[in-house]
C-alpha cells in the first residue's frame, strides 16, 4: 500500500509538471468544457422564460443550479484515456508500460486525479463566477454535500473504468474513434448534459435508467440540487455500485484478452 502511495505521488508530480508545459492547450480545453454547460444553461433559461417561467419542474434558477453543478461533475469525472490508447497501441508506447513492474492503469488513474486537482483551481472560481452571474437556486446542506462527494467519487471511478475498458478496443481495431464518437453522443443525451433527464421522453428516461451515463453524471447533480428523495438516493447509489462492479469486471476481462491479442501480434 505504502509502495502504491509512493508511486502515485511520483506520478502526480510528473503529470503536474507535464501539464504546466501545456498551459495554453489546457486552458483551451477547459474553456470548451465550461462553455458547453453555459450554452445549455442559457438555452434552457431562455426556453423557460418564453414558456412563462417553467420547463417541467425547472425554472431558470433551477437550470442555473443544474448546469453549474453539472459543469463541476463533468470536470471531475471525464477522462481522455480513449484517445490515448489508440496512440499507445499503434506507436508501441504500450510496450514500454508493459515492461514496468506496475500495471499501466495506475499511471492513468494518477494522471486523471492530478489533472483534476489542477483543474479545480479553475473550476471552482468559474463556478463562483457563474453563481454570481446566474443566481442559481442552490442551497448548501452539509449532509447533502457529503453524499454528493461520495457519489462524485464513485462516479469518477465508474466512468474511468468504463472509458478505460472502451479505450482497450484499440487492441482490436485502429478505428476506435468511431466508437468513441458514439459513446460521447450517447453520453451527451443520456447523462443529462443536453437536458435534465426528467425533461426527456419517457422511453429515453427508461433507457437512461439502465445505462451507466445517468449514474455517472446526472445522479450526483440531482443529488446536490436536493431534487431526490431518500429512496431515489439509495437507488442511485445502488446503480452506481452495480455499474462500478460491472465496469471493473469488464475491464479485467477485456484487459486480459487484449493483452493476449497484443502479445500475439506485437506492435
Amino acid at each position: 500500500m505504502k509502495h502504491y502511495l509512493e508511486i502515485y505521488w511520483a506520478f502526480f508530480k510528473t503529470t503536474i509538471a507535464v501539464q504546466f508545459q501545456y498551459r495554453a492547450s489546457m486552458s483551451i480545453w477547459m474553456i470548451g468544457r465550461v462553455l458547453e454547460p453555459v450554452v445549455y444553461l442559457v438555452v434552457w433559461a431562455t426556453v423557460a422564460n418564453a414558456r412563462g417561467g417553467m420547463v417541467g419542474d425547472y425554472n431558470p434558477e433551477d437550470f442555473a443550479a443544474y448546469y453549474i453543478v453539472l459543469m463541476i461533475v463533468n470536470q471531475f469525472t471525464f477522462t481522455w484515456v480513449m484517445h490515448e490508447y489508440d496512440y499507445r497501441i499503434r506507436q508501441g508506447a504500450l510496450s514500454v508500460l508493459l515492461l514496468k513492474p506496475v500495471h499501466p492503469i495506475h499511471s492513468d488513474i494518477a494522471d486523471n486525479i492530478s489533472y483534476k486537482v489542477l483543474m479545480s483551481f479553475i473550476v471552482f472560481p468559474t463556478a463562483i463566477l457563474l453563481y454570481i452571474l446566474f443566481d442559481p437556486n442552490l442551497l448548501f446542506h452539509l449532509q447533502t454535500f457529503a453524499l454528493f462527494l461520495c457519489a462524485l467519487t464513485i462516479a469518477f471511478f465508474m466512468r474511468f473504468f468504463i472509458e478505460w475498458t472502451l479505450a482497450l478496443i484499440a487492441f482490436w481495431t485502429t478505428r476506435n474513434e468511431a466508437i468513441n464518437q458514439m459513446y460521447f453522443t450517447l453520453g451527451l443525451f443520456l447523462s443529462g448534459r443536453i437536458a435534465p433527464i426528467e425533461l426527456l421522453p419517457n422511453l429515453v428516461q427508461q433507457i437512461a435508467n439502465i445505462l451507466p451515463f445517468r449514474w455517472a453524471v446526472a445522479f450526483p447533480v440531482e443529488l446536490m440540487l436536493g431534487r431526490l428523495s431518500n429512496e431515489q438516493i439509495w437507488h442511485g447509489f445502488t446503480m452506481q455500485g452495480m455499474w462500478l462492479v460491472i465496469s471493473l469486471v469488464l475491464l479485467k476481462i477485456v484487459w486480459r484478452s487484449g493483452i493476449k491479442k497484443y502479445s500475439a501480434v506485437g506492435s
Binding site: E6, A10, F11, T14, A17, V18, G92, A93, V96, P101
Partner: peptide, 23 residues
C-alpha cells in the same frame, strides 16, 4: 526509438519516476 523518458519534463524527473515504479 522507444521512450522511457517523458518528453516534456527534465530527464532527472523521469529518472525519479522510475525510482518510484521500481521501488
Amino acid at each position: 526509438q522507444r521512450n522511457q523518458l517523458i518528453w516534456d519534463i527534465p530527464v532527472g524527473d523521469s529518472f525519479e519516476r522510475n525510482r518510484a515504479i521500481y521501488r
